[in-house]
């Protein structure tokens, strides 16, 4: 899961303080593993260095770091690229995919297209595995089947998600 892309995307709705960003992230994605402040600051300084965010202002008299960040044009492009780029189909992708779907919904991009792209990528891999299975020996078949079952489970999740996009959108965009 890419925390950097996630935090960047959260900035698309407007400039935020680091503290705000952590709270927003925890609320939407960090159900069981909240971010450390340190993670936020190190990520933000990396993004700052890469020119994807800029400092919008510093709040006076506050705590240790009261910087307010805003996303740059380059940052927006980076988010878009990330979203359209299918993830390499591999097991346990859900959290990344879920984050991407929510981000797409939050930023008004097409979550359905995202899912379709991902499905095509999954299917591409499944075809390769199916093909290998058809040519291979029993060991190959068993190994391929294992992978196929996991990919299939992911794809089921994708299907399910795509049928529930409307409800999800209503929930993440209050």
């Amino acid at each position: 899961m890419s925390i950097g892309h996630t935090l960047l995307a959260l900035l698309e709705s407007g400039p935020r303080h680091g503290y705000d960003l952590k709270r927003a992230f925890d609320e939407k994605f960090g159900h069981d593993r909240p971010l450390h402040y340190g993670q936020v600051y190190s990520t933000m300084s990396r993004l700052l260095k890469n020119g994807l965010v800029e400092v919008d202002g510093i709040e006076a008299g506050g705590g240790p770091d009261r910087k307010r960040y805003a996303i740059t044009e380059a940052g927006i492009t980076d988010v878009a690229t990330w979203l359209t780029q299918p993830e390499k189909p591999e097991p346990y992708l859900q959290s990344t995919l879920y984050t991407k779907v929510v981000i797409a919904l939050l930023t008004g991009r097409s979550a359905a297209a995202l899912l379709d792209t991902q499905r095509a990528e999954h299917l591409r891999l499944m075809r390769v595995l199916t093909d290998r299975k058809r040519r291979g020996d029993l060991a190959d078949q068993l190994i391929c089947d294992h992978a196929l079952f996991h990919l299939e489970a992911d794809l089921r999740w994708l299907e399910l998600t795509s049928t529930r996009l409307d409800r999800l959108a209503a929930e993440v965009r209050p």
Partner: peptide, 11 residues
């Protein structure tokens, strides 16, 4: 079924 669809060339 995606496992069935995996037998296709294209979807």
């Amino acid at each position: 079924e995606t496992r069935v669809a995996a037998y296709s060339d294209r979807e």
